[in-house]
Design a protein around this nucleic acid. Structure first.
Lengths: 345, 345
DNA sequence: TCCCTTTTTTGACACACGTAAACTTTGCAG
DNA sequence: CTGCAAAGTTTACGTGTGTCAAAAAAGGGA
């Protein structure tokens, strides 16, 4: 059971009786080698323990068949969904994914980019940290390799391929729904950690104007830009409820995690969102966080098409890697959100 | 702003006017080079764009300063917490973490292990998939590099270092609490995706016996071993409630995600767990999932010390890498759980 | 059997850097 | 000025594989 361990391809070629270049071709693509020789090699491989050295392999290749992915935050089911979609698509394309997490720290994000450059990855897919990101790092990354932004796009980088959600559409969609089933919705903003925050707010305002309603935004004055969305949502709404405000209104939260906090505030104030008999309070979110169906009440929201976003980001990356891109105008792909009506609104 | 790009250390040494070996030492540890020379090099680096090649760097080193981490599942906040703890600890130790996710597929898990071996990572920390994992892969991994199991431990691998939670203690703790505040708790088992499922069940039974109570387990007969914990919890409990059973009991769920499903079942049946005036139903979980405080009602649970587990796994790994381990008996480290009382029980 | 084509092998160089030994320069005290 | 240690340079070789051209071998048809 304990096979002899062979470290180098050289030694392996001696053990099997095939030349090293032939082995090299075999490991890259067995179809490049005659069937008979393939059989001989495979038989030999069963006798020993050998794994080609990853580094030596990539060192002298034009393409490393690896892509780097940066996400800002691990403990957020939205980003894990996105990452999963990317990983699956990349796996299908035969790419090795190197994942790095910024841990909401621009310095770590910059270091991750540095790592990608030193690894000569074929390209980088980045879900940016937001305002605090070091823009210079992105510029360097872009000048060195194919580069695709995902989920959120800094205004300072209009010339980069981008895949995300059409927030004007998605936010408009749920704004319209809330207006239809209840009174004019209020927008509970989220900490402005990235550019989506503003886009959603604008999407809400635009739709309200279109409907001839007066937009109303709360929670935007909280300036502590962190990722504690739930606490933010609860704090803002608890303060409002304490003053007797918004207890019978439709409240559109900038994302589901804010909405989770909002639901908690409602619960603590004895309010039951979504049930008209207990007053007109409605709470809705945005993203369709994995746990939304299991909240109490289940959260009405707009689903982001994470599967499509992740897949598209990888496909675009492949095009860039293969040089199949003719014009150099950036490709902006926005996927529509889908309304998911549950009990909370 | 666009600095000239230098690819090799050789070229860089020419550009700066310092020998290549000196540069090599500088990049490994600037303190190995005289301050004056350091200044000269750093000044030179500002003029050009150069990043040492990751592969070439690692190729000829005895230690790659990289560790591999495998987690079974991305869309689970428990594992992301664990991963975060590992990444932070590894970063502090100056290690580069290569993360791979099994996506609940043994074949992918095996491939990830293969990647680690070909990368010559210094060691591997694995949160195993469970019963379905290919045990041979673990054996090969262990025979090739320092190997630490985390979170869950296959019974077939008793000779491996392991860091996890003391489930007998943690489950016992909450079993005791539930017995004290209410009637004898029922155990709602989880799909047996890994070995923790059994350990927790046993922990519950042991504590019940100790208390002179009769253990009662439900939900164990569901054999579809997947990761849809919420659906499982809801389905089991909904079926029981429909038969009028357990509506006034304390229900200890095998983990928080099962409990989330249980809460939903309760809500759908008009039950309000944790509030005595509405009957004696209590629901508790295990893990202290990040969202527990925001559930409705907030979930009473036992917190796993993910921060300590992750850190300890890395520290043990460092010991193994440095060869500081004298005896070859495996080190088993179990952290206690902490009771977190909220409103649901 | 001979010739031609397809495979395979051989040898050599490239990749970008680590590492060690021998040698040279530098800095400083006496 | 001499002696000496620390720092830096040169030189050479090692790391495991990719890649290419040329040579050799194998295979197939007449």
């Amino acid at each position: 059971m304990n096979k002899p361990r062979i470290k180098t391809m050289e030694d392996l070629s001696l053990a099997i009786g095939v030349s090293r270049p032939t082995l090299s071709r075999f490991f890259q693509d067995p179809s490049l080698v005659k069937a008979k020789t393939v059989a001989k090699i495979e038989k030999g491989l069963e006798q020993v323990e050998y794994v080609p050295n990853f580094f030596a392999t990539r060192l002298n290749r034009k393409s490393t068949r690896m892509i780097g992915v940066i996400i800002p935050y691990l403990n957020d089911l939205f980003f894990t969904e996105l990452l999963e979609a990317v990983e699956v698509a990349a796996m299908d394309a035969g790419l090795t994914v190197i994942t790095q997490c910024s841990h909401s720290d621009p310095a770590i994000e910059a270091r991750a980019a540095e790592t990608f450059m030193s690894m000569n990855v074929d390209g980088a897919i980045v879900a940016p940290l937001g305002d605090h990101s070091d823009q210079m790092v992105y510029q360097r990354l872009k000048s060195r390799m194919p580069f695709v932004l995902m989920d959120s796009r800094p205004k300072t980088m209009p010339d980069v391929d981008y895949v995300g959600t059409n927030h004007a559409q998605s936010t408009g969609l749920i704004t319209e729904y809330l207006s239809r089933v209840g009174g004019p919705p209020v927008f509970l903003a989220m900490p402005r950690v990235n550019f989506n925050a503003v886009e959603r707010e604008n999407g809400y305002i635009a739709k309200m104007n279109e409907l001839g309603l007066v937009p109303e935004v709360i929670g935007a004055e909280f300036v502590n830009e962190n990722w504690h969305f739930e606490d933010h949502g609860e704090a803002v709404l608890a303060a409002e409820f304490a003053r007797g405000r918004f207890t019978d209104r439709s409240i559109l939260c900038a994302n589901d995690r804010v909405a989770i906090g909002a639901l908690r505030a409602a619960s603590r104030h004895g309010l039951a969102p979504g049930q008209l008999k207990k007053g007109g309070l409605r709470i809705a979110g945005h993203d369709d966080y994995l746990l939304c169906p299991y909240l109490n009440p289940p959260l009405t929201t707009v689903a982001q098409d994470t599967a499509s976003i992740g897949r598209k980001a990888v496909l675009r990356m492949l095009q860039l890697i293969r040089g199949e891109v003719i014009d150099d105008t950036p490709e902006i792909t926005l996927f529509d959100g889908n309304l998911v009506v549950r009990n909370s609104a």
